[in-house]
């Protein structure tokens, strides 16, 4: 008994040692690259810091300043509009196309590739450059509208329409969500549709009462991820607006304002406070999502 016990513990010790060696890079990473900077940024958010002289403790001043900063409020409003318009729109398009592609259609792999490609390219500077031209005054969109005799605005140059071009760019990258939906649709057992059909349910009723409930966990997952990601969008807004968030701050996404505060004006303390507000916002939105998910997300295992 004692003998096996000792041998077990020797084996366990060996396992423990191997694990810690394997985990060593991660532990170092968490301390030095993730959690350490996280705490440092919390500290910096209570200071006035410009990289050149030592941080100076200012208490809640940065947070008080955020309440007064109208440009920050504008950035929040722009980001919220961008997120709450583009994410549902993108998910709706993704779901609609996943439905179209689901039922054993010919050429599925081809369509899937074509729709997926923009998701890979959408975050690049090159596509941002392209978007500037597509939505420019002489761009592709206006050339197309011109065929019908409509004279389009200079989408990028006009504060009323500039954000639309960014929203459309986000919707354009619906492919990855579509692939997730396609995988989810495949998981729905065929017998549920058969049972519904036996009960005389039409195609539309089957969609409403079988497909949608069974997909809600995936819709939910996509939505949470979509909101978190879109609150952090940077590259597209930076490139399309030429780094300014203009015209008239109409494309000033939160991250863009944070960037200009931190690396343009070297307000590192204020930028840290802004980053923490972002943490809170993303956290609260995720919590709200989870809270309301109980009402509409359906888990087939009964939880």
């Amino acid at each position: 008994m004692t003998k096996t016990g000792r041998r077990m513990s020797a084996a366990a010790r060996q396992e423990e040692r191997a694990a810690w060696m394997l985990m060593a890079p991660w532990f170092l990473g968490v301390v030095a690259v993730t959690l350490g900077p996280l705490l440092a940024s919390l500290y910096l958010s209570f200071t006035d810091y410009n990289l050149l002289s030592a941080p100076e403790w200012v208490g809640l001043e940065n947070y008080a300043e955020m309440l007064r900063d109208t440009r920050l409020h504008k950035a929040l409003a722009v980001t919220a509009t961008y997120t709450f318009v583009s994410v549902p729109l993108m998910l709706a398009v993704a779901l609609a196309l996943a439905m179209l592609l689901n039922r054993g259609i010919k050429g599925l792999a081809f369509y899937r590739s074509v729709y997926y490609l923009p998701s890979l390219l959408g975050g690049s500077v090159a596509v941002g450059v392209l978007w500037r031209q597509v939505f420019g005054i002489e761009g592709l969109v206006n050339q197309f509208l011109g065929l019908f005799g409509i004279e389009g605005p200079g989408w990028i140059a006009n504060p009323d329409t500039a954000l639309i071009s960014l929203i459309l760019l986000h919707v354009w990258t619906f492919g990855s969500s579509m692939v997730i939906f396609l995988a989810g649709l495949r998981q729905i057992p065929e017998h549920l549709y058969e049972a519904a059909a036996l009960d005389g349910a039409s195609k539309r009723e089957q969609f409403r009462h079988v497909t949608v409930p069974m997909l809600t966990p995936i819709i939910f997952f996509n939505m949470v991820l979509g909101i978190i990601n879109s609150f952090q969008t940077f590259t597209q807004a930076f490139v399309v607006s030429g780094g300014t968030g203009g015209p008239s701050d109409s494309t000033l996404l939160y991250s863009l304002y944070l960037y200009s505060e931190a690396f343009g004006r070297l307000h590192m303390g204020y930028a840290s406070a802004m980053a923490w507000l972002l943490v809170v916002i993303v956290g609260v939105l995720t919590a709200i999502n989870f809270y309301f998910s109980k009402r509409w997300v359906f888990y087939s295992d009964g939880n």
């Binding site: 690259v33 959690l35 900077p37 952090q232 944070l258 590192m268 930028a271 840290s272 980053a275 943490v279």
Partner: peptide, 17 residues
């Protein structure tokens, strides 16, 4: 949890370091 942390919150101190 680190999956959820917005990149910007660690970028400033990282840059400083």
């Amino acid at each position: 949890l680190t999956l959820m942390v917005p990149i910007y919150v660690i970028l400033v101190p990282q840059y400083v370091a």
